[in-house]
Amino acid sequence: MKNAFRKTAVPFVLSLALVAGTAVAQSTAPASPSSSSSMSSAGKTHAQRRADRVEEQINDLHEKLQITDAQSKQWNAYADVMRDNARKASDAFRQRAQKMSTMSADEVMKSYAQLAQMHADDMQRLSAAFSDLYSALSPEQRQSADALFQNKAATAHHGAAHKKMTRPASASSAASTPST
């Protein structure tokens, strides 16, 4: 039973953590190259480093999609939803982590459900914002977006399946302990 719970809950929590990390990073304004390089990685918190990585991903997506000035309204709306989602997820994970040592098993399960519902609601908002952006893209940009998103989905799916198949049983149980 305990192992079945881990097999179900841990991938879910890890995926939420990745989404939260992406969202948190998107919640910060892009740092100028000089300011980000002048602050050492060691001087930053985990959340700041994660936010920097996500902001890099946002900038990369903006560049790869070649967002134009005419599309900036839809792009900014999409980015704002990502930033808002990130702030909410970051706060929720931080609050959960602070309470974890005093939570009963029932409360832990309810917290998973709350995180899942929050994630689902946030993804609905993000999807709607992306639909607005996607409709403003040129056919060439749409092709780029399609390729980028399909490639990311395939890589994420393949990576998760590969890890399951290659991870030794002892590493599997250690890796399945949530670190939120």
Score class of each variant (00 low, 15 high):
1 M>Y: 15
7 K>M: 14
10 V>W: 05
13 V>D: 04
16 L>M: 13
17 A>T: 12
17 A>H: 08
17 A>L: 15
18 L>G: 15
18 L>H: 11
20 A>K: 01
21 G>V: 15
21 G>A: 11
21 G>H: 05
23 A>Q: 14
28 T>S: 13
28 T>E: 14
29 A>N: 13
34 S>H: 09
34 S>T: 10
35 S>V: 04
36 S>M: 11
36 S>D: 06
37 S>N: 12
37 S>H: 08
38 S>G: 10
39 M>K: 11
39 M>W: 01
41 S>D: 05
42 A>F: 10
44 K>L: 05
44 K>S: 03
45 T>N: 00
46 H>N: 10
47 A>N: 02
47 A>E: 00
48 Q>E: 10
49 R>S: 05
51 A>M: 07
51 A>K: 01
53 R>P: 05
54 V>S: 06
57 Q>F: 09
57 Q>H: 09
58 I>S: 09
58 I>F: 07
59 N>T: 08
59 N>M: 07
60 D>Y: 03
62 H>I: 02
63 E>P: 00
66 Q>I: 01
66 Q>S: 10
68 T>M: 10
68 T>F: 05
69 D>S: 09
69 D>H: 08
76 N>W: 02
77 A>N: 13
78 Y>G: 02
78 Y>E: 00
79 A>S: 11
80 D>E: 15
81 V>I: 15
82 M>I: 04
83 R>W: 04
83 R>I: 06
85 N>W: 10
85 N>E: 11
87 R>F: 14
90 S>H: 12
93 F>D: 01
93 F>W: 04
98 Q>I: 04
99 K>M: 04
99 K>N: 03
100 M>F: 04
105 A>W: 04
105 A>G: 07
105 A>H: 06
110 K>D: 13
111 S>N: 04
113 A>H: 08
117 Q>D: 09
117 Q>N: 10
117 Q>Y: 03
118 M>I: 02
118 M>H: 03
119 H>M: 07
121 D>T: 06
122 D>P: 00
124 Q>K: 13
125 R>F: 00
128 A>L: 06
131 S>T: 08
134 Y>K: 07
134 Y>S: 00
140 E>W: 12
141 Q>R: 04
142 R>E: 06
144 S>F: 00
145 A>G: 04
145 A>V: 01
145 A>E: 01
145 A>H: 02
146 D>S: 14
148 L>S: 05
148 L>M: 14
150 Q>F: 12
151 N>Y: 12
152 K>F: 10
152 K>E: 03
154 A>N: 09
155 T>L: 10
157 H>F: 02
157 H>S: 14
159 G>S: 12
161 A>E: 08
163 K>W: 05
166 T>Y: 01
168 P>V: 07
172 S>W: 06
173 S>W: 10
173 S>A: 02
176 S>K: 11
176 S>E: 13
178 P>K: 12
180 T>M: 09
